[in-house]
């Protein structure tokens, strides 16, 4: 057990190092000079002033040191929780900007992933034994899963937001309010949260339901289910076993999908102009704010790694077969 965990942790650590390295490389080897573009926005025309300011900012951002020193100081900063200073919001530290956006993204992602997964699985298991549901709602699920996400999100924003006017279509809260712990602000948060959440939830739901339905049908035909039925076991028991067995591939599916789901969240936030990490990515790209971009990617990588690790642990807890393999197994 612990050896298995140790091996897993090692792999995750390795992934982390590689991801951080690539993350550090991309902005430095990409064309375009962040300091120059920042200065050009300031319309500095005097060449001498430009020279001095460039040198100054290069020093602030640590861009004047040799590459390997930059790399090492990047790691050192990482462990101090210092990801550098944003160009776009100069001189605010990158970490502060990200931490401000993270709650929005998490509040959107976690309920959307968890709820769509739970509801989709139960719904799929239910559809597997109802002909009517199987023939009506599942095809709708196929359509939903096949629809390009942005189009669906735009459609929702347009129909529920603009035409029906039920929900606001942009922002994390009403721009007329200042953040605070009062009811008005909280309700504004919820109303703004609902559409982006719903669009993510709906899109993910169909996929889970379809997967679960197929798995349940397969499990109900499996030998152990046939045997139980031959011994007169009630449907409830057979279904419970089938559901638990069918969950295992769905959990793996969740682990595989996590990366994609987070990309989906970027689109959601951009479509609904939601103040989370996704919008931040777009803004920092547009403004060539590589330090911010680098920080966000780092957060995403860490998030995906943690989520995958949690799923790994959960899988070990619920599937005895992985546990047996870990301890060497006896036959």
């Amino acid at each position: 057990m612990w050896r298995y965990m140790g091996r897993k942790l090692f792999v995750y650590a390795l992934t982390f190092v590689v991801a951080v390295t690539i993350n550090w490389m991309i902005p430095r080897f990409m064309p375009g000079d962040p300091v120059r573009s920042m200065l050009s926005r300031g319309s500095v025309s005097d060449p001498e002033a430009l020279e001095r300011m460039t040198a100054y900012y290069n020093e602030v951002f640590g861009l004047d040191a040799p590459l390997h020193e930059q790399y090492l100081s990047f790691w050192a900063g990482l462990f101090r929780g210092d990801l550098g200073i944003s160009v776009m919001f100069y001189p605010e530290p990158v970490v502060d900007i990200i931490l401000r956006a993270v709650p929005y993204t998490l509040a959107l992602l976690v309920p959307a992933i968890v709820l769509s997964w739970i509801v989709g699985n139960h719904f799929g298991a239910f559809a597997a034994r109802s002909k009517v549901l199987d023939n009506t709602i599942l095809p709708a699920g196929y359509v939903l899963t096949a629809t390009p996400y942005m189009w669906l999100a735009l459609l929702m924003a347009w129909s529920l937001g603009i035409v029906a006017g039920v929900f606001p279509t942009a922002g994390g809260y009403s721009f007329a309010l200042t953040p605070g712990a009062n009811w008005e602000f909280v309700s504004s948060l919820i109303v703004h949260w609902f559409l982006p959440f719903l669009s993510m939830f709906v899109v993910a739901l169909g996929g889970w339901a379809i997967g679960m339905r197929n798995m349940i049908i397969y499990e109900l035909e499996d030998d152990y289910a046939t045997y139980l039925r031959a011994l007169g076991a009630p449907r409830r028991l057979v279904r419970r076993y089938a559901f638990r067995n069918a969950m295992l591939p769905q959990i793996t599916g969740l682990a595989v999908q996590l990366g994609t789901i987070i990309t989906g969240a970027l689109l959601t936030e951009i479509v609904f102009n939601y103040p989370g990490l996704g919008t931040l990515v777009l803004d920092s790209l547009n403004n060539r704010d590589f330090f911010l971009l680098q920080g966000i990617f780092l957060f995403v990588v860490v998030g995906v790694l943690i989520a995958n690790f949690v799923i790994d642990v959960v899988y070990v807890l619920i599937d005895p077969r992985t546990r047996v393999q870990m301890t060497g197994g006896s036959s």
């Binding site: 046939t226 045997y227 139980l228 031959a230 011994l231 076993y241 638990r244 599937d319 077969r321």
Partner: peptide
Amino acid sequence: SLIPQYAMSALNPI
């Protein structure tokens, strides 16, 4: 009662 042909896979694996 029945001892099935597939007795080896008749038990719920989990």
